[in-house]
């Protein structure tokens, strides 16, 4: 069974979202997503300063087997990226919810946060696959 954390929000394209105290959000891919992808060998994160709309392609994660797009779960500006992934992409497999985060955004529309799935909602997405 994959690890789905109750304190996080999710989207059905398998990104997780953590609301930080400073109002930014941190984004990564779920344990289920890293497990389906297999060994991650390359991650392309967006550039800091990029403005993204909800659903925009924000980057790519590639495993030995395949490439998979990362989408912006909300609209906003990219304020930080996880540079560890450049040299150690396998961190995504080892620690998908902590050290393996992808990027951080400053949301431009707080109402979008209400549309995100909670852990139970995401569990249903995973179970229906």
């Amino acid at each position: 069974m994959s690890d789905i954390r109750n304190e996080l929000k999710y989207v059905s394209s398998h990104e997780w979202i953590r609301l930080e105290e400073d109002g930014t959000v941190t984004i990564g891919i779920t344990d289920h997503a890293q497990d389906s992808l297999g060994d991650v060998v390359y991650v392309e994160t967006p550039e800091v300063g990029t403005a993204l709309a909800e659903g925009d392609e924000a980057g790519v994660v590639e495993s030995v087997k395949a490439a998979s797009d990362i989408y912006a779960p909300i609209s906003g500006e990219v304020v930080a990226v996880n540079e560890v992934l450049e040299d150690a992409p396998e961190t995504v497999n080892e620690s998908p919810y902590d050290d393996g985060w992808f990027f951080r955004m400053q949301p431009s529309d707080a109402s979008e946060l209400d549309k995100l799935l909670d852990a139970d909602g995401y569990r249903e997405v995973v179970d229906s696959e």
Partner: peptide
């Protein structure tokens, strides 16, 4: 079988 629990890199 595309992979076992060890994963592609370890199997390789």
């Amino acid at each position: 079988p595309v992979q076992y629990p060890a994963g592609v890199v370890r199997e390789h």
